[in-house]
């Protein structure tokens, strides 16, 4: 197995850990954390392909990861604010309990 494949296997394992967590748990915060893990796994791929790609000097993978980190931070902030707002209205953080769109 080449080092690139090793990196890809690592990132896909991480992705699946995040996916399993996001699907199996019902606490909204844990689901959000699982999604964050999946995003991070995608970032690992960018870095791996940048490292072993044909043009590491161009640094496209690095730039992409920087943007992805910024967007993921924004997503986490808004997502957790939503969790807090839902908790205030429904007194619950379980996903199944907030199924109606009407506030």
């Amino acid at each position: 197995m080449s080092p690139l494949q090793l990196c890809l296997v690592l990132s896909s394992l991480l992705f699946c850990v995040g996916l399993a967590g996001a699907l199996a748990r019902s606490n909204t915060i844990l689901v959000l954390l699982g999604i964050e893990l999946m995003l991070n796994a995608a970032n690992l791929n960018f870095i791996a392909f940048w490292r072993y790609g044909p043009q590491p000097a161009a640094g496209l993978g690095v730039i992409f990861v920087l943007f992805a980190i910024a967007v993921a931070a924004a997503e986490a902030a808004v997502g957790l604010a939503l969790v807090i707002a839902i908790h205030r209205h429904r007194k619950t953080v379980r996903l199944q309990d907030s199924t109606a769109l009407k506030g």
Partner: peptide, 28 residues
């Protein structure tokens, strides 16, 4: 914070396992 139900946990893990199989197949 308990796991919700056995069904949900099993479904999640099976799905993740399936995705992992597909990804591994593609990578290798």
């Amino acid at each position: 914070v308990e796991f919700d139900s056995f069904r949900r946990a099993a479904a999640g893990i099976i799905t993740a396992g399936g995705v992992m199989g597909v990804l591994f197949g593609a990578i290798l």
